[in-house]
Simulated assay, not measured.
Amino acid sequence: MGIIKVNNIKLYAYHGCLDEEAKIGSAYRVDVIVEADLKKSAKTDELADTVDYVHLNHVVKEEMAIRSKLLEEVAQRILDRFFRELKMIEKATVSVSKINPPIGGNVEEVVVILTKER
């Protein structure tokens, strides 16, 4: 088993329960960890034998562009697409961070982390 990480995917999106969040948006960071059998790709040096991190990034960008009230829903959509589209993935963790959330205090970020296994 091996691990592929895609760290610090920076995006601007419009998630949140407040009407203002839908209008002005916010900065987000997404981190992805996937586990898969990487023994074959380590020998063949072929992209077809591994989990393509370009595809992981593409899924994150597309799903983050779809507005949701809750970060949990966004993270779950990302995980569901990973497992639907990338059959090699055995386990994945997605962390969605809202930078400077509007919660009436000096808070750097709010983070939701979800994990899914095949």
Rank of each mutant, 00 (worst) to 15 (best):
G2C: 12
Y14G: 01
I99A: 09
E72N: 13
Q76V: 12
I9R: 09
K23Q: 05
Y28N: 02
G2H: 11
V60C: 02
V34D: 06
Y53V: 08
Y28V: 01
L38H: 00
E46M: 14
G25H: 03
I4Q: 12
E46R: 11
L70V: 02
A22R: 15
V32I: 14
M1T: 09
I3R: 14
S95P: 09
V74L: 04
V111F: 07
M88I: 09
A75F: 04
L70S: 07
P102S: 08
M64P: 04
I89T: 03
A36P: 01
A92D: 04
H15F: 10
N8E: 12
Y28A: 00
R118D: 03
V112W: 10
D45Y: 02
D31K: 06
R81A: 13
D37I: 07
S68H: 13
V74T: 15
E21R: 01
F83T: 11
K5W: 07
I4R: 11
R81P: 00
G2K: 13
H55C: 09
K116F: 01
T44F: 03
I66S: 04
S97L: 06
V111T: 15
Y53S: 06
L18N: 07
M1I: 10
I113H: 02
N57G: 04
I66N: 08
A65V: 04
N57S: 13
G105W: 14
T93P: 00
E20V: 09
R84F: 10
V94C: 03
Y12H: 15
A13S: 14
N7H: 12
P102N: 06
E90G: 10
